[in-house]
Amino acid sequence: MTPLPTWQRGMRGWWRRDPAFRRYLLREATSVAIGAYALMLLAGLGCLVAGPAAWQRWEGLILSPVGLLLQAVVFAAAVIHAVSWFRLMPLTIPPLGRPGRRLADGAIHAGAWAASALCSLGLLGWLVYGA
């Protein structure tokens, strides 16, 4: 049988078609910002090893207005990243608990945020009192 003639539409500019697609791309793009921040910290470590002059140059760079602005952008990206990651968490892990008594999405969200808060507070405490 000859196949029917059809019209195949392209995918050009697909992200413009729905806000959900742009939210998805934003979510994925936050990983780039966080990766860039990790590289910045790595560069700082390299400067620390290189000596006091290099360290001060790096410190001056991150405390400059541009450096602070970039860190604000990274912080905003990290917040979006965390919120969207925890929101999707129940979709990506196997069902927890026994059949009929499965852990609800809300409990997984709450657990994830509680663990995140605990780790953040622990790190903060270690930085302030422990180091």
Binding site: D18, A20, F21, Y24, E28, L88, L91, T92
Partner: peptide
Amino acid sequence: CTLVGHCTE
């Protein structure tokens, strides 16, 4: 699947 998630919506 890259978890766009719009299918569920």
